[in-house]
């Protein structure tokens, strides 16, 4: 299944929020929708979910306009919240029924997810008696219980402890393995980098960068080497001003051109005790700052 947003324009009053936004997400892969606050991520998601229509542009699934009766969408909004005063099983069943499930199927699926997330003991409790992290797990069930084709997770990891984050990672991987489209929106780049095969960076309502994360990284000039070593002082003395230290404490050597790569690598391995030499690839964080940050400065 391929989900495609094509030339989406949207304005609220005088304010143009989206200007010709297009991106493609594939089933069985995770897609990261990135952007700074106010870049248009939530608006894109809402248009995708048919909360309001776009001024122009299309949402396509496998090349045809999306049929919301057939394509199920699960959504974990960034602003979390359900009914605080209501019994958990009651409200979860309600949300699942609204998504078109029968009552019986809904209860069955919810019980599965409560079990899966270790929340069965809270089944008949009121939501406001739960801790914040547990409330978030309950909210995750509203996004998954009806077995949607497209899962949209907006900042899914915020507020989760490492154990719960682990649990969520497993769930997400499971969803991806089932061939679903998992759409992430997050500011936590490490998670996006871990899961997402392709990304789109939104900036001021425009897609600043879109594509396969691996390809994007490969497209950067491969003219820097990262060296992990115990005797960095000697190497620094040898390479002089081409050397710098990365944040993680490794050596970074700037080459005069990418063609030099092989020669320098050989030189390093032959002359020094080196643990690791590899071509430097920018982190998603670097890429994000470059695309979302720079364009922002132009304003």
């Amino acid at each position: 299944m391929i989900l495609e947003l094509k030339n989406i324009d949207k304005s609220f009053g005088e304010k143009e929020v989206l200007k010709g936004v297009s991106f493609t997400a594939e089933g069985g892969k995770a897609f990261g929708l990135l952007g700074r606050n106010g870049a248009g991520k939530t608006t894109s998601i809402r248009i995708l979910m048919n909360v309001f229509p776009a001024n122009s542009g299309e949402v396509l699934v496998d090349g045809k306009p999306i049929d919301y009766d057939k394509i199920g969408i699960g959504y974990l909004p960034e602003e979390r919240g359900l009914y605080p005063k209501k019994i958990i099983i009651d409200q979860l069943t309600y949300f699942a029924e609204l998504k078109g499930m029968s009552r019986k199927d809904a209860v069955k699926s919810i019980d599965y997810w409560l079990e899966r997330l270790g929340m069965t003991e809270y089944r008949n409790k009121r939501l406001d008696t739960l801790s914040k992290g547990n409330q978030q797990k309950i909210q995750l069930i509203t996004a998954l219980a009806h077995d949607p084709d497209i899962v949209i997770l907006d900042e899914p990891f915020s507020g989760l402890d490492p154990v719960n984050a682990m649990l969520l990672k497993d769930v997400v991987k499971e969803q991806i393995a089932k061939g679903k489209i998992v759409l992430f929106s997050s500011h936590q780049m490490s998670y996006i980098e871990e899961f997402c095969d392709s990304i789109a960076i939104l900036n001021n309502g425009v897609v600043a960068l879109h594509g396969d994360l691996h390809d994007i990284k490969r497209d950067y000039p491969r003219d820097r080497l990262v060296v992990r070593t115990e005797n960095s002082d000697a190497i620094k003395a040898d390479f002089g001003s081409a050397c710098s230290i990365t944040e993680s404490g490794d050596l970074l050597i700037q080459l005069s051109s990418a063609d030099e790569k092989k020669a320098v690598m050989t030189r390093l391995v032959e002359n020094y005790d080196v643990d690791e030499v590899r071509v430097f690839e920018p982190s998603l964080n670097d890429i994000f700052v470059e695309y979302a940050g720079d364009a922002a400065k132009e304003d």
Partner: peptide, 13 residues
């Protein structure tokens, strides 16, 4: 519903 943000899910459902 709006202030508890249950709306975020409701409006999409």
């Amino acid at each position: 519903e709006k202030s508890s943000r249950a709306m975020e899910v409701l409006i999409t459902s």
